[in-house]
């Protein structure tokens, strides 16, 4: 049988059946009011799990594709964010350093206002001397900045740190208050009794110095404040040296001496001020 005969034989029946089904579905849809008909419902029941399975597989492929395609983008974005974070952290660090320096400079200004005769030169501590037999450090300024050997060195709060012991063109060594070579004229306590702050090797190991050569008839008390006397012209008058931590006697038991605790915290120093000029007390 050829195609024309087949269509002529079965076509009418097929057309009538199709038309009938369409009419039935249309009419029944009007009555069902949105609810799926039996055929649709059955088709849906069969179709739904297949669609779910296909959807899962497609999603998986999509995520894999996204992972492969967008990985490089994510790596690049990560690097950019890391760089931005590092820059932000660096800015924060610089801001903290600037704030700290600002505080020190304000205190130095306060010092300058209290002692208007002082001329101050600021310097940074470059390196601490690694010897076990002295206490000194190197600073970032030298002769070209107008420094001279013997100039006193203080903190921004006016606490005595030491004096310049050695000088180069662009560097200088500062022997601290507890160094064995230290010799400072001081006034002790409220009465202002004259004495000497002298470096002592044994006390230097513990971060202390010695108050010695007391004026006859004077006494030391724990907690007494020690200030520079200004006598001799080596140091200005009134710089805070430290406090008396303890009062002891020499090995022979005759001479009392004080254990001086420096006011400045030598371990935390990073920046100091050199007094390049001041009025000498006569």
């Amino acid at each position: 049988m050829n195609f024309k005969k087949f269509v002529r034989r079965y076509g009418l029946r097929l057309g009538a059946m199709t038309l009938g089904v369409v009419l039935i579905v249309t009419v029944s849809a009007q009555f069902l009011n949105g609810r799926a008909g039996v055929i649709s419902d059955t088709a849906g029941i069969v179709k739904s799990p297949v669609q779910s399975a296909v959807s899962v597989v497609v999603d998986w492929f999509e995520s894999l594709y996204g992972y492969i395609y967008e990985y490089d983008k994510l790596v690049a974005e990560n690097e950019t964010l890391k760089t931005q974070l590092a820059e932000a952290q660096e800015e924060a660090r610089q801001g903290a350093e600037a704030r700290e320096e600002n505080v020190k400079l304000r205190e130095a200004l306060n010092l300058q206002q209290k002692h208007s005769d002082f001329t101050l030169e600021m310097a940074r501590i470059v390196n601490w001397n690694s010897s076990n037999w002295s206490s000194s450090f190197t600073i970032s300024k030298g002769e070209t900045s107008g420094l001279q050997v013997g100039m006193p060195v203080v903190t921004e709060a006016g606490e005595l740190v030491g004096e310049i012991s050695e000088l180069g063109d662009t560097w200088a060594n500062v022997a601290t208050l507890i160094d064995v070579s230290t010799n400072v004229g001081v006034l002790v306590g409220e009465a202002g009794n004259a004495a000497m702050a002298i470096g002592d090797f044994a006390l230097m190991q513990d971060g202390y110095s010695k108050i010695y050569h007391l004026t006859e008839g004077t006494s030391l008390l724990e907690g007494d404040t020690v200030l520079t006397s200004g006598q001799g012209g080596a140091y200005p008058q009134g710089l805070v040296v430290g406090t008396i931590e303890n009062v002891l006697t020499e090995a022979g038991g005759q001479m009392p001496y004080g254990v001086l605790k420096p006011s400045c915290d030598l371990d935390s120093l990073s920046q100091i001020f050199i007094i390049t000029a001041f009025n000498v007390v006569e």
């Binding site: 037999w133 064995v180 070579s181 044994a202």
Partner: peptide, 14 residues
């Protein structure tokens, strides 16, 4: 090094 401190600055021996 100790001799330097002992001679110049009268450091204690112990």
């Amino acid at each position: 090094q100790a001799l330097r401190v002992f001679v110049l600055y009268d450091g204690e021996l112990l």
